[in-house]
Design a protein around this nucleic acid. Structure first.
Length: 426
DNA sequence: TCTGGGGTCCTAGGACCC
DNA sequence: TCTGGGGTCCTAGGACCC
């Protein structure tokens, strides 16, 4: 059996941890740039706040009810996420925990006798809560996809389920699938849901009855087949326990306000490139391809929002590197090619791909024989930035003014990762 | 005025190889 | 005049996830 463990309103729970007076009070957390609402406590949900909705649309409701509102504080959430995962690892055999996202992990419960699954799930839930202060929900079922369904049900009825749902018989599984709308199935997005509704399928149980060949032609090929198998209880998505390195690394942000000057865009790109290069070195890899993109401001009608057309260029480096200065040099050349005077830009970003582990970088016959020669220097920069504070050392091209920087007006202190911002107890 | 950021996997099609 | 068959690798774009 597999389990998925999912933190309840994770970002809101993190904020509440250091603001106990907000327990049982409505709380929301905003995306970068204070643009969207990306975490909602149950109390705020009851007041009608919708997930991923724009902040400015909900502002009247937020003010009316005095909903506590925070900008996102990723230093805090990242640290608490790490703690939750560590507790899980202590509770389970080696290699039974697959960290799936910042607030979710799949667990392999193959070692638990069937009649003890409920107790084990409850034990995991309470231990995580005791050790970290973060409340979680647990869904248990024969496959990952069914475990996700179970988790949904646990979350929907927190009181009756005690945040734990185990689907261990066909009857329970079918019952659960019948009350699961298509869009709530893991792997069914808006597009597929629409397609399915057009042929008269509206819930997960009906989807389970579809022939695999139909899924192969109409539901994304092998992806669709896997989905149907998983719903039928056949394991088609396996556990992936080992820590795998990323295959691409992206850093992108909306600007705090639209930007018109080439120099501002270049500063932003240099800053994002530095950040991406740090991530790259942290997993001890180098990148062969660098892609830079910008998003010009678009005229919008009030009905729908769509991300503007992004325009980008990429270059392939003769030899993979993780040295910030080299990556910045190429990124800035790309930026100059992309920038059009007179236009306003809302967003920009850098994508590093073609990643290779540092030990196995392919040399280049015509290039310098010293691979990644400045790596040593970069290690020193990383260490200083890590131990002192972010960006105590940085490249001049990243700028100092940063008038493109994102808004984060409501961020809480980084209680657990900055000495200066430690919680004080009087 | 104000709508996130960072990923993954898959497929089709082109270029190229023997 | 005739122009195969089987394969790999790469990339762009689509769909999806949290």
């Amino acid at each position: 059996m597999k389990a998925i463990i999912d933190c309840n309103s994770f970002y809101c729970s993190c904020e509440r941890l250091f603001r106990p007076e907000l327990k049982d009070k409505p709380v929301v957390v905003l995306s970068n740039n204070d643009g969207c609402i990306i975490s909602i406590s149950d109390e705020a949900k009851k007041l009608g706040i919708k997930m991923a909705s724009p902040y400015f649309l909900s502002k009247p409701v937020i003010e009316k009810h005095g909903i506590a509102t925070f900008s996102s504080n990723y230093n805090l959430y990242g640290d608490l996420s790490r703690r939750v995962m560590e507790v899980l690892r202590t509770l389970l055999p080696v290699n039974s925990v697959e960290v799936y996202s910042v607030d979710e992990a799949f667990l392999n419960l193959g070692h638990i006798p069937p009649d003890q699954l409920v107790n084990e799930a409850l034990r995991i839930r309470t231990t995580v809560e005791q050790c970290t202060g973060i409340s979680v929900s647990v869904g248990v079922a024969p496959t990952k996809t069914l475990a996700k369904v179970a988790n949904h049900i646990a979350k929907k009825n927190k009181v009756e389920t005690q945040c734990v749902t185990v689907l261990d018989t066909d009857k329970k599984i079918n019952n659960a699938l019948q009350q699961t709308p298509l869009g709530d199935v893991w792997g069914v997005g808006r597009r597929s849901a629409l397609k399915l509704e057009n042929v008269g399928i509206t819930d997960a149980w009906q989807l389970k009855q579809m022939p695999q060949n139909w899924a192969r032609t109409h539901l994304g090929g092998v992806v669709g087949v896997r989905l149907i198998k998983e719903l039928r209880g056949e394991e088609a998505i396996e556990m992936d326990e080992e820590l795998t390195n990323k295959k691409m690394i992206t850093t992108t942000r909306m600007f705090g306000q639209p930007v018109r000057q080439l120099c501002d865009v270049k500063e932003a790109i240099a800053t994002y490139t530095s950040r991406a290069a740090e991530k790259l070195r942290r997993q001890r890899s180098s990148a062969k391809t660098i892609y830079v993109f910008v998003v010009p401001k678009v005229q919008r009608d009030n009905e729908t929002f769509s991300h503007g057309p992004m325009v980008g260029h990429h270059i392939s480096l003769p030899c993979a590197t993780s040295v910030t200065s080299q990556l910045i040099k190429h990124a800035l050349q790309l930026t100059e090619r992309l920038f059009e005077p007179g236009k306003e830009y809302k967003k920009a970003g850098v994508i590093l791909s073609g990643l290779e582990p540092d030990e196995t970088i392919q040399g280049n016959l015509f290039g310098s024989h010293v691979k990644n020669s400045q790596r040593f220097l970069m290690d020193i920069v990383d260490n200083l930035n890590f131990s002192m504070r972010n960006d105590i050392l940085k490249f001049a091209s990243s700028g100092t003014e940063k008038n493109w920087k994102m808004r984060q007006e409501l961020r809480s202190p980084r209680y657990t990762t900055r000495w200066k911002e430690l919680r004080e107890v009087k």
